[in-house]
Write a protein that binds this DNA or RNA. Structure first.
Lengths: 124, 124
DNA sequence: TGACAATACATCGAAAGCCGATATATTTGG
DNA sequence: CCAAATATATCGGCTTTCGATGTATTGTCA
């Protein structure tokens, strides 16, 4: 059973694992993508994301690899900007499916409380 | 429009207003009903519910009336057990609809992230 | 009849979670 | 050259959470 309802963190975990299930991304990119996808309905800020990412990694739900991007102008001489790419693990995918299941369970209960009034002629 | 994702409290508010939208109930009864309906997926305890109920009342989303239940055995002589019945207000119903809308918006976004495939293998 | 479980309402405080502010560094655009 | 964007990260004050606890009445069962 989907564990008890827990704080926002669970929703955020779901969303982050969700976007990473499609393709590897780095933090800043995750923020932009989630904002765009949700039309800013989901507020995922750096102060929330990075600690979450670190937790997720500690729990081995994701792994990370550094990339150094050098500018064309500066070339080899520059230190380069660093990006940390995150990849979802098999364990992470299992967790994601759990979260999705849990979320859908909650959702179906909500819908059980409040059946969408598509057809009001539906007999009981 | 559904504001940013907020803590668990919002989900609980949704659930509580939801059960009260069907009929008036008293606290203890709300706890039992939500547990039963959600098959214990939603953990709504006394320590969480009563403060929430008081907030909801302060916000005029619900109103309350006391009932004194006397035991048949003891009859008039007993002090009686007290029950506080809660009723949803018109304002409460409006709030409920807002919450449902917000929840569905979040839900549909989740489903956009993860379109429910007929069947898929979790292999790799 | 006595004891224990269930009913019923309620508060409190430790712990956890949230998120804006802040820090550092590089690259891009004007 | 400078401001804005890119990119990662931490910190601390504030809010939220919920288990523990308190009080009281009623129901059950030996």
């Amino acid at each position: 059973m989907p564990g008890p309802v827990k704080p926002q963190r669970e929703s955020l975990e779901l969303v982050v694992l969700g976007v990473l299930s499609e393709e590897p991304l780095y933090g800043y990119c995750i923020i932009k993508r989630v904002a765009a996808r949700s039309e800013h309905a989901i507020r995922l800020t750096a102060g929330v994301l990075y600690p979450l990412l670190h937790e997720l990694e500690a729990a081995r739900l994701i792994t990370s690899t550094w990339e150094t991007v050098r500018s064309e102008r500066a070339g080899e001489s520059s230190a380069g900007r660093k990006r940390k790419w995150y990849h979802i693990t098999a364990r992470g995918r299992r967790r994601l499916h759990q979260r999705i299941t849990a979320h859908r369970a909650f959702q179906s209960m909500i819908e059980a409380f409040f059946p969408p009034p598509a057809d009001e002629e539906a007999a009981t």
